[in-house]
């Protein structure tokens, strides 16, 4: 990737200072497999209602940090997490943290679309139903408004009872986005959500994310620096499980403080 390509003015906010309105606070976070640290003592804050891109080379711990935020590592044998994560009033790693509440408020979208083996409509309604959030007689409206929001309504309105596996990969990912939004989360954790999708769908999802920023704090792990440049307000750069730099997107891409960041942006490492 050439530096010239990346010097196209970013569409994101042109600020130089990090936001002080913090939504998520990560303190001394380490994620270990046995004795090996995948993430090593990382402290960070993620700004409220902004898009933060988490970037770094393969094996830098991007996804591991992301999955620590909604305690997905709890379910991976051999993983242990040290440190604290706070999201608003939720102390994520406190022994009496309510995981159901945590995950209702923190949505997640995965690298590959993972619709459930149920109808399209049931995919949307499954989580609100599980949390008792579906208004009486309002399930169809809820479905429609969410599918409208992600731009999938026209494609699926005649087959809401049909299988989601008949949809294209991009449409399945949009369905998963709608499924995540059905819980009205405060935070969205996105793990390379467009890496398996075509450019058209990627662009569509990116514009959706920019719109969502008004109501949701978004963290997106991406391998694609151009994507980070296009949509993020702030960038967190990790290498080998350590935090290298946390800066506004503008600063990171045009005037990074750390030499390794500049090398990464210019394509010399990564």
């Amino acid at each position: 990737m050439s530096a010239g390509y990346l010097s196209v003015p970013a569409g994101a906010v042109h600020q130089q200072e990090l936001s002080t309105d913090t939504a998520i606070r990560v303190n001394d976070l380490s994620v270990l497999v046995g004795q090996k640290a995948l993430v090593d003592n990382v402290s960070l804050t993620f700004p409220h209602k902004r898009i933060t891109a988490i970037v770094g080379p393969t094996g830098s711990g991007k996804t591991t940090v992301l999955r620590a935020i909604n305690r997905m590592h709890d379910h991976t044998p051999g993983f242990s997490v040290k440190g604290d994560v706070t999201i608003g009033d939720i102390d994520v790693y406190s022994p009496d943290a309510n995981l159901r509440v945590l995950r209702r408020r923190v949505g997640m979208l995965f690298q590959r679309a993972n619709p459930f083996p149920q109808s399209i409509q049931d995919n949307i309604l499954i989580a609100p139903k599980a949390h008792g959030m579906v208004p009486k007689n309002g399930s169809r409206d809820l479905c429609e408004s969410l599918l409208q929001e992600v731009g999938l309504w026209n494609a699926v309105k005649d087959r809401l009872g049909g299988s989601p596996f008949m949809l294209s990969g991009g449409q399945q990912q949009l369905l998963c986005l709608a499924r995540m939004l059905a819980l009205q989360p405060d935070v969205a954790l996105l793990d390379e959500p467009t890496s398996a999708l075509d450019p058209g769908t990627t662009e569509h999802i990116e514009s959706l994310l920019k719109g969502l920023r008004e109501k949701v704090t978004i963290l997106i792990v991406t391998h694609n620096l151009a994507q980070a440049l296009r949509i993020s307000d702030e960038v967190v750069f990790l290498m080998a499980g350590k935090l290298v730099e946390h800066a506004t997107a503008n600063k990171f891409f045009h005037d990074a403080a750390d030499e390794r960041s500049r090398e990464y942006v210019s394509g010399r490492i990564g």
Binding site: R103, M108, A127
Partner: peptide
């Protein structure tokens, strides 16, 4: 994982 992440 999808179901876990939805708090089910």
């Amino acid at each position: 994982e999808g179901a876990t992440a939805l708090g089910m």
